[in-house]
Design a protein around this nucleic acid. Structure first.
Lengths: 333, 333
DNA sequence: CTTAAGTACTGCAACGTTGTATAGTCCAGT
DNA sequence: ACTGGACTATACAACGTTGCAGTACTTAAG
């Protein structure tokens, strides 16, 4: 049984509350007393009991981060950055994998964990719109664009503009048949729909035909399969905009297998700027979102809602984060 | 303020304890009463307060997983699998990033989180040996070989044998100058040392010279830099065994930049079987550990220690998990 | 008809912590 | 000497839950 305030108090010859005051850095404690208590704490190896603290204060010091899957490098990176940002506030991050399952996401929002976490940073995949609304419970910050008008804060890059940037870049290389890999028309696939919109608008601007390939999900295998379909289907594209880097890496793999050169025969650009793309052969051009800033802002927004007792007060905010086009070998020359 | 047992009890016209009994599935509750209480629970949206539960029971239902970094695909995969395995027991996993910092790892072992988690699955990087010993606190399962004789369970593959398998494979291709990338001589770099041992023994067996490149850490950039040094240094190797896949991907990148073909000029094999290697150009041969089994066993071991009150009882166990050699393009032909 | 065993439910205490209220001490300024 | 304030320390009551002990009633067995 680990020692409690009681044990420390007994050893130091003071009251329980005085020990509590020392632990919490209360100012009005005589130096001698403080020293005695400190010594007792050291001697017994006292560590505050978080459960009891939380029971009293209602705060656990834990925030949850819900992402579709950790295996995806982009989410792993975001997760790592959020953990770091949370550390500055000495929060612990509990990472939840939703696997893109609506049921799981619903549970999160419904607040099944309500009593254990102070706040939630959530990157929704299966849910969208009003389904994300939650009544007065845990403060929540969403990663991704705001496409509805519920009470949660959002942090996102401008997906549509970024997709247009990527597509325009391909146009500027003089490519004419520019395909998009990553189309999804589920109503909840907000990100895919926005990137598609950006792609279409840039193509329309340049007067080029659209060539759109749907995918099940955003993994390498989906990219590889989509590219294969594209090649088998008809006149082959001379450029591909993939809605994330994993799709692009999969697509490049198929191109290599078919003996096509990148960017010679087909230029490829991705989205997310994951590390893999910096070391692939060829290296992958991409849209680089300012991930550290996304993480920082998400945590800051949450802190704001948490600090202020009136969490509900203040209109929900949408914060826009920068992105930039990174040109590497897969679209060089 | 969320409703508590008290509120439910008032609404259902029973005592607090009866509600508690219903919630906990205690058998001796009249069906009618149970129904009434259930209705009240539904109506108020009652959710048990985990903090209070933990305070009473000492159990939080949360286990921690400590890995060096989530950005590393291997750890991300393990993390995902462990979360899934833990879910079967309805445990929540709190993922901790140590960033390979000894201080951070020490804190974990010392049990700074002692009161908030029931158990710890730990993949140590900076710490080794007796430093990992911990007195009677939280049950702990270590990922990685047991190189000391403390009280914790271990789950690991046979790193030395696996490294020898990889090296022998390169020998069997008729390669003569087989380099190793990933050497580390910090006493805590247990994994690196074991893989090095396997490499050396296989080379000795085949009567080939050793060619060893140290690295700072196990990332793509380290692999790329090590490969560059290797090429600049002297007679170039015709095969490289990299101690993980990230190093191998980095090395392949350097080879591509230098215009060398893989496996034509240099065969490359990695270790971990991360997804990147299945889609890289060329695809990467590797040692594939049975990661799902590692995750399952780690969780099962922890459950065993947790279930039994006498956690200290029972000798610490070391479980060996299978691995296999996966031959892909980077060592084909 | 008594006793024992079983069922249905309740009340109290405790888990370890902190906010509030309070009491005593000491000194400065009247 | 007397008031007011700052300082130091304490006691008590919660936070929401569950283990334990206990009460009242029912049924079965002797």
């Amino acid at each position: 049984m680990p020692p409690g305030l009681k044990d420390v108090a007994a050893r130091a010859g003071v009251s329980i509350k005085t020990v509590s005051n020392v632990v919490n850095g209360y100012v009005h404690v005589a130096p001698a007393t403080r020293a005695r208590v400190q010594a007792a704490i050291e001697a017994l190896g006292y560590v505050p009991n978080m459960a009891a603290r939380q029971l009293r204060s209602g705060r656990s010091g834990v925030i949850a981060l819900a992402v579709p899957e950790l295996q995806s490098p982009y989410f792993a990176e975001i997760a790592g950055l959020i953990v770091q940002a949370a550390e500055q506030r000495s929060w612990t991050v509990l990472i939840d994998q939703t696997d893109g399952q609506a049921e799981r996401e619903r549970n999160l929002v419904a607040g099944l964990r309500r009593h254990a976490i102070d706040g939630l940073i959530f990157s929704p995949l299966a849910l969208a719109g009003e389904e994300l609304a939650h009544e007065g419970g845990t403060p929540m910050v969403l990663l991704g664009e705001r496409v509805w008008h519920g009470p949660a804060d959002h942090v996102a890059i401008d997906n549509t503009a970024a997709a247009a940037d990527a597509t325009r870049h391909l146009c500027s290389l003089g490519r004419r048949r520019i395909a998009a890999i990553g189309v999804q028309d589920r109503p909840s696939a907000v990100t895919a729909r926005q990137r598609l919109a950006g792609y279409r608008s840039a193509l329309a601007e340049a007067g080029r035909p659209a060539l759109e390939m749907p995918v099940e999900s955003f993994h390498r295998a989906d990219g590889a399969a989509a590219m294969a379909r594209l090649l088998d289907e008809g006149e082959r594209p001379d450029a591909v905009f993939c809605f994330n880097d994993l799709l692009a890496l999969g697509a490049m793999r198929t191109l290599a297998e078919r003996g096509l050169s990148v960017p010679g025969d087909v230029a490829v650009i991705g989205f997310d700027d994951i590390e893999d793309g910096r070391f692939s052969t060829p290296t992958l051009s991409t849209i680089s979102p300012d991930a550290p800033r996304i993480a920082q802002l998400a945590v800051d927004l949450l802190a704001e809602r948490l600090g202020d007792g009136s969490a509900a007060a203040g209109a929900p905010r949408e914060l826009r984060v920068d992105h930039r086009l990174v040109i590497r070998e897969s679209t060089a020359g």
